[in-house]
Amino acid sequence: MSAVCSLFQLHDESREYGMGDYEGAQARWCPGCGDHSVLSATQRLLARENLPPEKTVFVSGIGCSSRFPHYINTYGFHGVHGRALPVATGVKLHRPDLHVFVVMGDGDCISIGAGHWIHAIRYNVDMVALLLDNEIYGLTKMQTSPTTPQGYVTNTQPRGSYLPPMNPIEATLGVTNASFVAQTAEWVPAHMLATMEAAYRHPGFSFVRILQRCPHFTDDLFGELPKHPERVQLLVHEHGIDLEALEGRFPNRLAHDPADLDEARRLAEDASVIRLGVFFRDDSRPRYEETRHLPAYTAPEKLELLERELDRYAV
Protein backbone atom coordinates (compact mmCIF):
# COMPACT_ATOMS: atom_id res chain seq x y z
CA MET A 1 0.00 0.00 0.00
CA SER A 2 1.58 3.24 -1.05
CA ALA A 3 1.56 6.00 1.50
CA VAL A 4 -1.44 8.24 1.28
CA CYS A 5 -1.35 11.98 1.70
CA SER A 6 -5.06 12.61 1.92
CA LEU A 7 -8.34 11.22 0.69
CA PHE A 8 -8.28 13.83 -2.04
CA GLN A 9 -5.80 11.82 -4.00
CA LEU A 10 -7.97 8.72 -4.14
CA HIS A 11 -9.56 9.77 -7.39
CA ASP A 12 -8.63 9.94 -11.06
CA GLU A 13 -7.00 6.56 -10.67
CA SER A 14 -8.34 5.42 -14.00
CA ARG A 15 -6.23 7.85 -15.99
CA GLU A 16 -3.61 6.25 -18.20
CA TYR A 17 -0.47 8.12 -19.11
CA GLY A 18 1.54 7.79 -22.27
CA MET A 19 5.10 8.79 -23.14
CA GLY A 20 3.84 12.17 -24.32
CA ASP A 21 2.56 13.04 -20.87
CA TYR A 22 6.12 13.09 -19.58
CA GLU A 23 7.66 15.26 -22.24
CA GLY A 24 9.26 18.39 -20.84
CA ALA A 25 11.34 21.06 -22.51
CA GLN A 26 13.49 20.26 -25.53
CA ALA A 27 16.68 18.67 -24.20
CA ARG A 28 19.76 20.80 -24.74
CA TRP A 29 22.40 18.10 -24.39
CA CYS A 30 24.97 17.56 -27.14
CA PRO A 31 23.85 15.39 -30.05
CA GLY A 32 24.78 11.78 -29.33
CA CYS A 33 25.01 12.34 -25.58
CA GLY A 34 23.96 9.35 -23.53
CA ASP A 35 21.68 11.53 -21.45
CA HIS A 36 19.17 11.47 -24.29
CA SER A 37 18.70 7.73 -24.14
CA VAL A 38 18.45 7.74 -20.34
CA LEU A 39 15.72 10.37 -20.62
CA SER A 40 13.78 8.37 -23.11
CA ALA A 41 14.08 5.15 -21.08
CA THR A 42 12.89 7.04 -18.01
CA GLN A 43 9.85 8.38 -19.80
CA ARG A 44 9.13 4.86 -20.98
CA LEU A 45 9.37 3.59 -17.41
CA LEU A 46 7.01 6.23 -16.08
CA ALA A 47 4.46 5.40 -18.77
CA ARG A 48 4.80 1.71 -18.12
CA GLU A 49 4.29 2.20 -14.38
CA ASN A 50 1.57 4.78 -15.08
CA LEU A 51 2.97 7.25 -12.57
CA PRO A 52 0.94 10.46 -12.35
CA PRO A 53 3.32 13.26 -13.38
CA GLU A 54 2.18 15.41 -10.45
CA LYS A 55 3.05 12.66 -8.00
CA THR A 56 6.53 12.16 -9.38
CA VAL A 57 9.58 14.22 -8.45
CA PHE A 58 12.98 14.24 -10.13
CA VAL A 59 15.72 15.73 -8.00
CA SER A 60 19.13 16.55 -9.40
CA GLY A 61 22.33 18.37 -8.54
CA ILE A 62 24.54 20.24 -10.96
CA GLY A 63 26.16 18.92 -14.12
CA CYS A 64 25.11 17.97 -17.65
CA SER A 65 22.88 15.16 -16.45
CA SER A 66 21.39 17.30 -13.70
CA ARG A 67 19.47 19.28 -16.33
CA PHE A 68 17.38 16.14 -16.57
CA PRO A 69 14.33 17.37 -14.55
CA HIS A 70 13.83 20.26 -16.96
CA TYR A 71 13.27 17.84 -19.79
CA ILE A 72 10.67 15.64 -18.15
CA ASN A 73 7.16 16.76 -17.35
CA THR A 74 6.96 15.92 -13.66
CA TYR A 75 7.84 17.99 -10.62
CA GLY A 76 11.55 18.63 -10.58
CA PHE A 77 14.16 20.04 -8.24
CA HIS A 78 17.39 21.18 -9.86
CA GLY A 79 19.44 22.00 -6.79
CA VAL A 80 23.07 22.51 -5.94
CA HIS A 81 26.15 20.52 -6.86
CA GLY A 82 26.45 17.24 -5.03
CA ARG A 83 23.43 17.64 -2.81
CA ALA A 84 20.52 16.10 -4.65
CA LEU A 85 20.25 13.25 -2.17
CA PRO A 86 19.53 15.32 0.97
CA VAL A 87 16.86 17.24 -0.92
CA ALA A 88 15.32 14.01 -2.18
CA THR A 89 15.45 12.57 1.34
CA GLY A 90 13.56 15.60 2.63
CA VAL A 91 10.92 15.24 -0.07
CA LYS A 92 10.35 11.58 0.69
CA LEU A 93 10.41 11.99 4.48
CA HIS A 94 7.73 14.64 4.34
CA ARG A 95 5.80 13.15 1.45
CA PRO A 96 6.10 9.36 1.27
CA ASP A 97 3.25 9.39 -1.22
CA LEU A 98 5.49 10.86 -3.93
CA HIS A 99 7.61 8.83 -6.33
CA VAL A 100 11.14 10.15 -6.07
CA PHE A 101 13.95 9.80 -8.61
CA VAL A 102 17.41 11.28 -8.24
CA VAL A 103 19.63 12.00 -11.22
CA MET A 104 23.30 12.61 -10.53
CA GLY A 105 26.52 12.76 -12.47
CA ASP A 106 29.76 11.13 -11.38
CA GLY A 107 31.26 14.33 -9.98
CA ASP A 108 27.97 15.19 -8.35
CA CYS A 109 27.44 11.88 -6.58
CA ILE A 110 30.89 10.39 -6.11
CA SER A 111 32.99 13.48 -5.51
CA ILE A 112 31.38 16.57 -4.01
CA GLY A 113 28.34 14.64 -2.83
CA ALA A 114 30.16 11.56 -1.57
CA GLY A 115 29.16 12.02 2.06
CA HIS A 116 25.48 12.25 1.21
CA TRP A 117 25.75 9.28 -1.14
CA ILE A 118 27.18 6.99 1.56
CA HIS A 119 24.49 8.02 4.05
CA ALA A 120 21.65 7.83 1.54
CA ILE A 121 22.59 4.21 0.94
CA ARG A 122 22.36 3.56 4.65
CA TYR A 123 19.07 5.48 5.13
CA ASN A 124 17.62 3.26 2.42
CA VAL A 125 14.81 5.70 1.69
CA ASP A 126 12.56 4.44 -1.08
CA MET A 127 13.79 6.21 -4.20
CA VAL A 128 15.62 5.50 -7.43
CA ALA A 129 19.09 7.01 -7.61
CA LEU A 130 20.54 7.13 -11.10
CA LEU A 131 24.25 7.77 -11.40
CA LEU A 132 24.86 8.91 -14.98
CA ASP A 133 28.55 8.11 -15.18
CA ASN A 134 30.44 9.42 -18.19
CA GLU A 135 33.68 9.40 -16.20
CA ILE A 136 34.38 13.07 -16.81
CA TYR A 137 33.20 16.56 -15.89
CA GLY A 138 31.45 17.65 -19.06
CA LEU A 139 29.54 20.81 -18.19
CA THR A 140 32.67 22.54 -16.94
CA LYS A 141 34.64 21.20 -19.91
CA MET A 142 36.67 18.14 -19.22
CA GLN A 143 38.09 17.94 -15.76
CA THR A 144 39.02 14.68 -14.06
CA SER A 145 36.20 13.00 -12.16
CA PRO A 146 36.60 10.32 -9.47
CA THR A 147 35.70 7.68 -12.04
CA THR A 148 38.04 8.91 -14.80
CA PRO A 149 40.37 6.05 -15.76
CA GLN A 150 43.96 6.31 -14.55
CA GLY A 151 46.20 8.01 -17.05
CA TYR A 152 43.33 9.67 -18.90
CA VAL A 153 44.34 13.18 -19.98
CA THR A 154 42.06 16.00 -18.88
CA ASN A 155 42.29 19.75 -18.51
CA THR A 156 43.00 19.54 -14.78
CA GLN A 157 45.33 16.57 -14.97
CA PRO A 158 47.13 17.06 -18.28
CA ARG A 159 49.65 14.32 -17.54
CA GLY A 160 46.80 11.90 -17.13
CA SER A 161 44.61 11.09 -14.16
CA TYR A 162 46.96 10.25 -11.30
CA LEU A 163 44.97 7.70 -9.41
CA PRO A 164 43.01 4.56 -10.15
CA PRO A 165 39.32 5.42 -10.59
CA MET A 166 36.78 4.96 -7.85
CA ASN A 167 34.49 1.99 -8.30
CA PRO A 168 30.98 3.19 -7.38
CA ILE A 169 29.41 -0.27 -7.40
CA GLU A 170 32.05 -1.69 -5.10
CA ALA A 171 31.73 1.31 -2.80
CA THR A 172 27.95 1.13 -2.65
CA LEU A 173 28.02 -2.58 -1.90
CA GLY A 174 30.33 -1.85 1.01
CA VAL A 175 27.85 0.38 2.81
CA THR A 176 25.70 -1.02 5.60
CA ASN A 177 22.05 -1.40 4.64
CA ALA A 178 22.65 -1.19 0.88
CA SER A 179 19.54 -2.75 -0.61
CA PHE A 180 19.68 -2.48 -4.40
CA VAL A 181 22.79 -2.05 -6.52
CA ALA A 182 22.80 -2.39 -10.27
CA GLN A 183 24.80 -1.34 -13.29
CA THR A 184 23.57 -0.77 -16.80
CA ALA A 185 24.63 1.07 -19.93
CA GLU A 186 22.71 3.63 -21.89
CA TRP A 187 23.69 2.03 -25.20
CA VAL A 188 21.75 -1.11 -24.23
CA PRO A 189 18.34 0.55 -23.86
CA ALA A 190 16.39 -2.65 -23.19
CA HIS A 191 18.71 -3.52 -20.32
CA MET A 192 18.63 0.02 -19.01
CA LEU A 193 14.84 0.06 -18.98
CA ALA A 194 14.63 -3.34 -17.29
CA THR A 195 17.15 -2.20 -14.69
CA MET A 196 15.26 1.00 -13.99
CA GLU A 197 12.05 -0.93 -13.69
CA ALA A 198 13.55 -3.34 -11.17
CA ALA A 199 15.00 -0.35 -9.34
CA TYR A 200 11.67 1.43 -9.23
CA ARG A 201 9.90 -1.63 -7.93
CA HIS A 202 12.46 -2.29 -5.25
CA PRO A 203 11.26 -0.91 -1.93
CA GLY A 204 14.24 1.10 -0.75
CA PHE A 205 17.17 3.07 -2.08
CA SER A 206 17.90 1.71 -5.54
CA PHE A 207 21.32 2.68 -6.79
CA VAL A 208 21.80 2.33 -10.53
CA ARG A 209 25.03 3.26 -12.19
CA ILE A 210 24.44 3.97 -15.85
CA LEU A 211 27.56 3.87 -17.98
CA GLN A 212 27.22 6.68 -20.36
CA ARG A 213 28.89 7.95 -23.47
CA CYS A 214 30.11 11.52 -23.72
CA PRO A 215 30.78 11.94 -27.46
CA HIS A 216 32.19 15.39 -26.90
CA PHE A 217 34.90 14.72 -24.32
CA THR A 218 35.32 10.99 -23.74
CA ASP A 219 34.21 9.37 -26.93
CA ASP A 220 37.20 7.06 -26.66
CA LEU A 221 36.07 5.70 -23.26
CA PHE A 222 32.70 4.20 -24.16
CA GLY A 223 32.32 5.20 -27.77
CA GLU A 224 33.60 1.91 -29.16
CA LEU A 225 31.90 -0.27 -26.60
CA PRO A 226 28.61 -0.71 -28.46
CA LYS A 227 30.66 -2.44 -31.16
CA HIS A 228 32.30 -4.78 -28.65
CA PRO A 229 29.62 -6.72 -26.84
CA GLU A 230 32.23 -9.31 -25.84
CA ARG A 231 33.65 -6.81 -23.36
CA VAL A 232 30.33 -6.87 -21.54
CA GLN A 233 29.10 -9.58 -19.24
CA LEU A 234 25.43 -9.71 -18.32
CA LEU A 235 24.56 -10.79 -14.81
CA VAL A 236 21.34 -12.72 -15.17
CA HIS A 237 18.88 -14.02 -12.64
CA GLU A 238 15.14 -14.36 -12.22
CA HIS A 239 15.35 -11.98 -9.23
CA GLY A 240 17.56 -9.62 -11.15
CA ILE A 241 17.40 -9.04 -14.87
CA ASP A 242 17.20 -11.71 -17.51
CA LEU A 243 16.20 -10.48 -20.92
CA GLU A 244 15.85 -13.09 -23.62
CA ALA A 245 16.13 -10.40 -26.27
CA LEU A 246 19.73 -9.70 -25.29
CA GLU A 247 20.94 -13.29 -25.42
CA GLY A 248 22.08 -13.11 -29.04
CA ARG A 249 23.91 -9.84 -28.73
CA PHE A 250 25.61 -10.51 -25.42
CA PRO A 251 26.68 -14.11 -25.31
CA ASN A 252 28.76 -13.56 -22.20
CA ARG A 253 26.26 -14.20 -19.41
CA LEU A 254 26.79 -15.08 -15.81
CA ALA A 255 24.08 -16.40 -13.54
CA HIS A 256 24.28 -14.33 -10.37
CA ASP A 257 21.79 -14.44 -7.54
CA PRO A 258 21.39 -10.86 -6.30
CA ALA A 259 20.79 -12.19 -2.80
CA ASP A 260 24.48 -13.16 -2.63
CA LEU A 261 26.28 -10.10 -1.27
CA ASP A 262 29.73 -11.69 -1.06
CA GLU A 263 29.60 -12.77 -4.66
CA ALA A 264 28.24 -9.36 -5.64
CA ARG A 265 31.23 -7.70 -4.01
CA ARG A 266 33.63 -10.06 -5.70
CA LEU A 267 32.08 -9.40 -9.10
CA ALA A 268 32.08 -5.65 -8.53
CA GLU A 269 35.73 -5.60 -7.61
CA ASP A 270 36.87 -7.43 -10.71
CA ALA A 271 37.30 -4.82 -13.44
CA SER A 272 38.39 -7.17 -16.20
CA VAL A 273 34.98 -7.03 -17.84
CA ILE A 274 32.05 -4.58 -17.77
CA ARG A 275 29.23 -6.22 -15.87
CA LEU A 276 25.66 -5.15 -16.38
CA GLY A 277 22.85 -6.37 -14.18
CA VAL A 278 21.63 -6.43 -10.62
CA PHE A 279 24.59 -7.04 -8.32
CA PHE A 280 22.59 -7.08 -5.14
CA ARG A 281 19.10 -6.63 -3.84
CA ASP A 282 17.40 -7.24 -0.54
CA ASP A 283 13.82 -6.02 -0.30
CA SER A 284 13.65 -6.57 3.43
CA ARG A 285 16.23 -4.02 4.56
CA PRO A 286 14.81 -1.40 6.94
CA ARG A 287 13.72 1.80 5.25
CA TYR A 288 14.23 5.05 7.08
CA GLU A 289 11.07 6.79 5.92
CA GLU A 290 9.01 3.78 6.90
CA THR A 291 10.67 3.51 10.30
CA ARG A 292 10.01 7.19 10.90
CA HIS A 293 6.46 7.16 9.55
CA LEU A 294 3.94 8.62 11.97
CA PRO A 295 0.21 9.15 12.14
CA ALA A 296 -1.14 12.58 11.24
CA TYR A 297 -3.22 14.90 13.40
CA THR A 298 -5.69 17.69 12.79
CA ALA A 299 -5.08 21.19 14.11
CA PRO A 300 -7.59 20.91 16.98
CA GLU A 301 -5.97 17.63 18.03
CA LYS A 302 -2.55 19.24 17.97
CA LEU A 303 -3.79 22.09 20.13
CA GLU A 304 -5.05 19.60 22.68
CA LEU A 305 -1.75 17.75 22.68
CA LEU A 306 0.18 20.99 22.98
CA GLU A 307 -1.88 22.13 25.95
CA ARG A 308 -0.94 18.88 27.63
CA GLU A 309 2.69 19.49 26.74
CA LEU A 310 2.55 22.99 28.21
CA ASP A 311 1.05 21.57 31.39
CA ARG A 312 4.42 19.98 32.02
CA TYR A 313 5.97 23.44 32.17
CA ALA A 314 3.16 25.09 34.04
CA VAL A 315 4.04 27.04 37.16
Binding site: V4, F8, A296, T298, E301
Partner: peptide, 15 residues
Protein backbone atom coordinates in the same frame (compact mmCIF):
# COMPACT_ATOMS: atom_id res chain seq x y z
CA UNK B 1 -3.66 4.58 11.21
CA UNK B 2 -3.61 4.73 7.45
CA UNK B 3 -7.32 5.60 7.37
CA UNK B 4 -7.12 7.87 10.41
CA UNK B 5 -4.13 9.75 9.02
CA UNK B 6 -5.84 10.17 5.67
CA UNK B 7 -8.84 11.67 7.49
CA UNK B 8 -6.58 14.05 9.39
CA UNK B 9 -4.62 15.08 6.32
CA UNK B 10 -7.80 15.61 4.35
CA UNK B 11 -9.22 17.77 7.13
CA UNK B 12 -6.02 19.81 7.15
CA UNK B 13 -6.14 20.22 3.38
CA UNK B 14 -9.66 21.53 3.68
CA UNK B 15 -8.41 23.92 6.33
Amino acid sequence: EAFDSALARTAEEVR
